[in-house]
Simulated scan of single mutants.
Amino acid sequence: MRRTFIVTDSTADIPKELADELHIRIVPLTVMFGETAYLDGVEMTAGRFYPELVRSKKLPTTSQPSPAEFRHAYETILEAYPDAQIVSIHLSSGVSGTYQSAVIGRSMLDHEQPVAVYDSKSASYGYGYLVVHAARMAAAGREAAEIIHSLEELGRQRQLYFLVDTLEYLQKGGRIGKAAAAIGTLLNIKPILSIDQDGIIYPVEKARGHKKAMNRIVEMLEQKVKGQKIHVVLGHTADLSTVESLTDMLRSRFDVADVLYTEIGAVIGTHVGPGTIAVFVWPAGDEG
């Protein structure tokens, strides 16, 4: 019987079939268009979300799960498996209150339970990869403490970049001003974003045009992982064709162990908009 179970939230952007295969429990965030609320990844898939986003005159809002929802997720597992350990891995506390909500949910349990809540200090598959890694370790019978130690090591090795196709949603979300957005759009500016070791999103640089931006991402990756065999995950906004040329570029310049594609879900997509591409890379070494 498995003793360790993995819980996460919907912003990990893990493909459903993979989450199901590894028995990962996902607690969804909420996306609201006006007064109508949808559970991210359940009632609002990426395929449905981006057309709705483009049609909407007002930017949707997002909210984290309540502590009670996390408590319920933990209790459901512990009622079925009283001796279970739980590792609960979540979106960076630097960009969301989801992690803190999970911590409060753990404190609401009736008595002391072996639930470890882990701040991924990342977003999208930047930590979805960690969740999948944790689930595979759990399936192999590893203890929670060993899993968390492995996550710390793996997290330090990740490289990730988001290439934003349009400035409209960064402007609507208040991350850049209207004037900057207008000038950037006129000049065909494509921002490249990343997440630092504290889990904070920051602009890496800007490039004029999509192709130049992709080339710049590849150049930056070469500085980080040149000569290493790597795992690659490419995120897209429900349009796989947008990442095909980048896949070819990466395969031609790196020793790529494997490539996984995932959709950037509604919560992350609200802030970056359609056409965004995400690149997640880890060395393909001994991963526990």
Score class of each variant (00 low, 15 high):
residue 180 A to F: 13
residue 120 S to Q: 08
residue 67 P to H: 03
residue 76 T to Y: 07
residue 165 D to H: 14
residue 67 P to Y: 10
residue 139 A to R: 15
residue 157 Q to M: 12
residue 131 V to G: 06
residue 98 T to H: 12
residue 69 E to Y: 07
residue 67 P to L: 08
residue 85 Q to W: 04
residue 157 Q to G: 06
residue 111 H to K: 14
residue 177 G to K: 15
residue 92 S to H: 10
residue 103 V to N: 04
residue 149 H to V: 00
residue 176 I to V: 15
residue 143 E to V: 00
residue 123 A to P: 10
residue 91 L to Y: 07
residue 160 L to F: 12
residue 97 G to M: 06
residue 90 H to L: 05
residue 104 I to E: 05
residue 89 I to E: 07
residue 103 V to Y: 02
residue 139 A to F: 12
residue 148 I to R: 05
residue 164 V to C: 01
residue 146 E to Y: 08
residue 141 G to Y: 13
residue 73 A to W: 04
residue 173 G to H: 12
residue 166 T to Q: 15
residue 95 V to T: 02
residue 111 H to Q: 08
residue 89 I to T: 04
residue 132 V to I: 11
residue 150 S to H: 04
residue 67 P to N: 09
residue 113 Q to T: 09
residue 80 A to V: 04
residue 99 Y to K: 02
residue 84 A to K: 05
residue 161 Y to Q: 12
residue 108 M to C: 01
residue 166 T to W: 01
residue 113 Q to D: 02
residue 142 R to F: 13
residue 123 A to M: 15
residue 72 H to Y: 07
residue 81 Y to I: 10
residue 131 V to A: 02
residue 176 I to W: 01
residue 107 S to A: 14
residue 168 E to P: 05
residue 130 L to C: 02
residue 142 R to A: 01
residue 118 Y to R: 02
residue 122 S to L: 11
residue 130 L to F: 03
residue 81 Y to S: 00
residue 79 E to L: 08
residue 163 L to T: 05
residue 79 E to C: 00
residue 98 T to P: 02
residue 82 P to C: 01
residue 108 M to Q: 12
residue 138 A to R: 08
residue 119 D to Y: 10
residue 72 H to S: 09
residue 146 E to I: 00
residue 140 A to Y: 14
residue 159 Q to H: 15
residue 76 T to R: 13
residue 117 V to N: 01
residue 96 S to M: 02
residue 114 P to C: 03
residue 164 V to S: 12
residue 90 H to V: 03
residue 92 S to E: 01
residue 171 Q to L: 03
residue 75 E to P: 09
residue 176 I to P: 07
residue 107 S to Q: 08
residue 106 R to Y: 10
residue 99 Y to E: 08
residue 132 V to H: 07
residue 68 A to W: 14
residue 71 R to Q: 11
residue 114 P to I: 12
residue 96 S to A: 13
residue 83 D to I: 01
residue 158 R to D: 14
